[in-house]
Structures are given as C-alpha cells and as structure tokens.
Design a protein around this nucleic acid. Structure first.
Lengths: 224, 224
DNA sequence: TAAGCTACTTAACCCGCACTTAACCCCTCC
DNA sequence: GGAGGGGTTAAGTGCGGGTTAAGTAGCTTA
C-alpha cells in the first residue's frame, strides 16, 4: 500500500484528493504549508510527494529544492495552476519528477503517482480483478492470496483476459493474443481455457472466467 | 551522456527531435515503426524510450506492453496527439512512465526525459539478493560470506539477473544483456546458466536461480 | 614455439511437461 | 431431431530446458 504526503493550502481541494486517494487504496498525509510539509518529509518516509507550488510559509519550488539538496530522493509530483513552459522548466530544474497542471483528472493523478512510486520501489505493475492478481514482472499470479500455477499459454490467456477486463474478448482476439500469427489448426483454445479455469476458478467459490455464448469470454470484476 | 531511442513514424518530427536532442547533448537512435523499435530495444541499452502511439507494424501501446512483459524496465515517455483521459490511462496501464501530448515544447520533453533518466541511474554499487551479494566496484561476489569464482559471462548473467530481481528476465533480455548485438548462433545461454548455477547455487542448500518455464529466469529473494 | 590454462561455443543426448489433436458429451436453438 | 457451440477427457508428440563433452580461440608461461 502506498503512502503519500500532500502539501496543499487549499483545504477543499486537499480534502477531495485525500478522499479520492483513499478510495484508490492510497494513504495520504496532509500538510497545508511548506514548512509543515518539509517537517513531515523529514520525519516519515513517503512513497511520493504531491506538492502544490503556491504555498504559505515556504513555496513549493523551495520545498523541492531543499529536499533534493538534503539528499531526499522521494519522487515528487508538482500540482499547480501555472501552465507556462517556464514554470514547468523551473519545476524540473528544482528536481521534481512530474508536473501536473490544474485542473486535472483525479484518475490521471493516481496513475502518474503510481508510475512514480513503482519506479522508486521497483515494484512491478499488477493486473487485478476481484481477488485475482497478476504480477507481470515477477510472473506470478495469486488468487485470494494463494499462488497459482500457470502454464505459459495459460499465462498468456489470462493476461489477455485481464488486460481487456471488464470487456469481453472474442475467441479470435484471444487466439491472436496467445499465438500471434501462427494459430493451431484445431481449436485448442477451449482446451487451454479448460485448464486455465481449473487453475484459476476451480478451487474457489466464484467463477471469474465466464463465457459469453457466441462472442467470447470475460473476466468479471473491478479492475484498478 | 544520455542515449535514447525514438520510435516515431513522422519523419519530419523525428528529424526535428533528433536534431534538438543532439543540441542538448543527448544521443538519439530512431526507428520508424513498432517492430523495428522493439528490435532495437532488444539489441541495445537505452536510458529512455520516446514512443509515439500511432505506429505502423505494431502500435505504441503494444510495444510498451511487450517490453514490460519481457521484463524490460527502461523508462518510457509516450508522445502522442491523443489527449483524452482514457488514452492516458491506457498508456499508464500499459506501463509507461510519462505521457506527453502533442504538440509539446521541445524543452519540456528534454526536462521530462532527463527526470526519468535521473531516476533510473540512481543505482547502487552493491547488489544483494538473500545471502548473495555483488560488489560492482570490486567486481567481487559472495554468497553466505564465501567468495564466488565467476567467469566474465557468468558475471554479466548474474548482474543482469540481480539488477532485475525480483522480476523475471526473459531469455531474450538475458541474451542481449550478455552479448549485446552479436548473439551466438546456438543457445549457449543454457550452458552458461548451467555453469553459473554450479558456481552460485550448487554448494548451497537453497537454489536462488530459478527457471520460469517458457519465459526466462529469476533470482528470488528480497533485495534491499 | 610449444605447452598449458581458461573461457566460450557448438553439438548431442535425455527427460518431462505442455501443447496439440481428436474424440465424446452435453446443452441450446433452429 | 439435427446442427453447432462449448465443456471434458485422454493419448501422442514435440519442444524447452538440463547435462555433458568435445572443439576452439586467446592468453600465459616455460
């Protein structure tokens, strides 16, 4: 689970952000001025810092510079209404990692901050549907915490399904995802699907892999 | 000095970018379609990848996904005219690190790519996985305190594995890490791996180097 | 220059697992 | 009742990967 620090003097906006991040499963501390932000950064360890530029006590650029001068390399994402090129360049010059101009979509903030945190901690991105989880870099898949044993084709199948989720994937799309250009003569897809289901669904009460007759297959469940 | 790969089918834009980056002291290779881009990525080592989305042969999203699936963690910056939120989310879902909407200021591109590369280069002098330790400066490796005797290729193999850990490294990625452009005809990789295992794992109870059938190899174990 | 060592490549072999194929069964919808 | 889409099962085989050994090139030492 990620833990962020948000430094923002607009309390309404701050509250909105903290609430939304909470929904996304991201903890977020909050400071409302630059000095307090610096103080918190020095005390705790955060996966990333969300930093407003217009701040009382100590402005965002200075906060960023001081952190970098102190050797703190926490990823920083600047949030600001200043959209001029010079402002952005100043931000990066001060040592920020990303720069997002207000107003922005909350979802974009989340994916950007996740990308930053991923780099820092070296954790890989995951595909997630309900209690099913795929760690792409480690090539490990778990359901409800238990690790799953997948064959190479099973893995490709599941990856294609989860990437598309919650959309339905046609047989054709699945086949080309698994075999590319050189598809097998007979439809071994159903055999592989059968084995995949045995690995992913059989030991559990709810069946995630569902067939949509005449069209293809889906993996149900909320994806990230 | 930074070295980038630009994958962009608009040749005018590509030329402009390459020229400007050159002025900034950044080397930049160029590929004009997705397949060629993948090929170059697999062959050489870049500090970052500038990736257009609309590409012939293989689109940018797929290139990104494939690289990540292969365990390549080169920072990626997507350049595209698509400015819709969903497009951005798709980009980050595919594993990009940053997303810049055309038209953009060249200077912004430069500072963003520098920020990405800076993150990446922050690498340790010492790699550690479980009781296995590599001192890059001294070019020495120990396991459980005992020093290991490694051949040059064995060293490169182990370094690639440990840098990636806990991620899985595909055979292709390992081969390009060891041999770069000039790969051997037959797969001598498995022979080298065999010898590496004899040096690293054989004398010890737990086997750190594990194979992921159909894909590649991992070194397990918590790294710092 | 020859002898010897080390490291790398190549080829050959073997094993086991995963993929393919084909068969059969069930269900639903013409 | 037939046809077709989909689920289930079993059998054969081919390939990925482990192991070994032989051949070669480069470097060192006598």
């Amino acid at each position: 689970m990620l833990t962020l620090l948000l430094v923002e003097d607009d309390l309404d906006l701050a509250q909105t952000l903290v609430d939304y991040l909470d929904l996304e499963g991201i903890r977020c501390d909050h400071a409302s001025n630059g000095m307090a932000g610096l103080e918190l950064m020095r005390r705790g360890r955060y996966d990333a810092l969300l930093l407003d530029l217009n701040l009382p006590r100590l402005d965002g650029l200075s906060v960023c510079q001081r952190l970098r001068t102190d050797g703190d390399d926490t990823p920083i994402l600047m949030l600001t209404a200043r959209d001029q090129l010079e402002d952005k360049l100043d931000g990066f010059r001060a040592g920020t990692d990303d720069y997002l101009v207000k107003p922005f979509a909350l979802q974009e903030l989340v994916v950007r901050v996740r990308a930053l945190a991923r780099r820092r901690s070296g954790q890989a991105q995951c595909l997630r549907c309900a209690d099913l989880e795929m760690n792409l870099a480690e090539r490990s898949a778990t359901r409800a915490g238990q690790s799953l044993k997948l064959t190479p084709t099973g893995w490709r199948l599941l990856e294609a399904l989860m990437r598309a989720s919650p959309a339905v994937v046609s047989r054709q799309a699945l086949e080309s995802a698994v075999w590319g250009e050189e598809m097998p003569d007979s439809d071994s897809l159903k055999v592989h699907l059968f084995h995949l289901r045995k690995a992913v669904d059989a030991p559990f009460p709810t069946q995630l892999i569902q067939t949509v007759p005449g069209h293809g297959f889906v993996i149900k469940g909320p994806d990230p």
